[in-house]
Design a protein around this nucleic acid. Sequence first.
DNA 1: GTGGTCTAGACCACA
DNA 2: GTGGTCTAGACCACA
Lengths: 122, 122, 122, 122
Amino acid sequence: MQLNFNSPKPIYLQMVDEVKKALARGELKPGDKIPSHKEQAQLLQVNPNTVMRAYQEMEREGLTETLRGQGTFIKNDSAILQSIRSEMAQAAVQQFIEDMRGLGIEPEEMAHMLRVTLNKEG
Amino acid sequence: MQLNFNSPKPIYLQMVDEVKKALARGELKPGDKIPSHKEQAQLLQVNPNTVMRAYQEMEREGLTETLRGQGTFIKNDSAILQSIRSEMAQAAVQQFIEDMRGLGIEPEEMAHMLRVTLNKEG
Amino acid sequence: MQLNFNSPKPIYLQMVDEVKKALARGELKPGDKIPSHKEQAQLLQVNPNTVMRAYQEMEREGLTETLRGQGTFIKNDSAILQSIRSEMAQAAVQQFIEDMRGLGIEPEEMAHMLRVTLNKEG
Amino acid sequence: MQLNFNSPKPIYLQMVDEVKKALARGELKPGDKIPSHKEQAQLLQVNPNTVMRAYQEMEREGLTETLRGQGTFIKNDSAILQSIRSEMAQAAVQQFIEDMRGLGIEPEEMAHMLRVTLNKEG
DNA sequence: GTGGTCTAGACCACA
DNA sequence: GTGGTCTAGACCACA
């Protein structure tokens, strides 16, 4: 999991997004157990309370569920899971367009710059 | 100037970016005077200290210069000005690609989704 | 026996209360044997340690007694048994009045709302 | 604000309920400012973080809103506010009926016990 | 070991 | 001063 400690975006929200992305990528699947908050805290070099906060946020969003004393699991029955990928992708597209428009860049140039950069990076 | 008071990104940095975007769009030009921090504060419904901080940041980045008693002006001789547009655009492109990759989306699909959304929004 | 795993009230205390209620209802009588902690644990899908703790609490309150090798039984000679029903009922009434007062609801309205709800539910 | 530090119910949730009750009683009104979390913490002899958690929960439930650097206020435009009183009252009634049923007490006796206790306490 | 609450206290952006 | 994030660490019920 990638965390940016210098970002103004709170760490616990970065963690929520990272889990969503892992779900979108198929690296996490419904029913999967995610590490305990203490384990995760050690892995990420972050305070256990910060992890707890991320986990509680995911629970609140219906992404995970907790089994008493057994751990936290990706929820199985949530319609949310289905739509995460397309929603997050759409949000990224919108953000991109807004950023580029803010710079006075026209649609054709947006597509062009994207193509060029993708080619350059292989 | 668009400010998002709920964003984790500090308002003073949002203000700096807004000025850079206005430069990229050509709405601000070298030599232009920008409002005094008190005026600006009232315009944006923001504390004067916050505007001050934004202006200091711009000065530090070489974007503006302050003439004693006359106000703050967009700098004329800065090489930075030339490159703002392409730098910020490139950053937006990179961010977009990174976001989409994070979701496991392939280059072709990135371009496709961009095209579709641009068409939909006219 | 009804347990609420999401309640902040510890499960072992919920279990004690459930036994008291069964006594009040007359479903359990002095001298009755209650299931062994292992049996009970399986019935309720709960850890045996949790049942043990509930049983210890009941013993401590004088509700039950354990006969070496024979099991745990509802006590016969306890004055406590006599008063459980009225005590718990009185506590429920007090709680109700307190809750309603906390909402600024007057006695007549309390009685009225109770009547209405009882009628609705048949 | 009444807090019970021995209750298994978390303090931060007790605080949320207390605010709701104050709203139901009309002691708090839309637009009212509630004490800063640091002030409240000192008043209630509780850790500031615990108050923060209560306040964030209220914000999440749409009960309050926060004005940057100015404090936390009871929300004005929320339909939730309208229904708090009746919802909480209905919940109390339901809880009471359930408690009494659990003791094997019939509807008439519920009403009777309520009347008696209300009379005794004047 | 696992989730969860709470305390104590630092640090930050903003008004 | 006001909201907000984060660290460090204690304590609890439950598996």
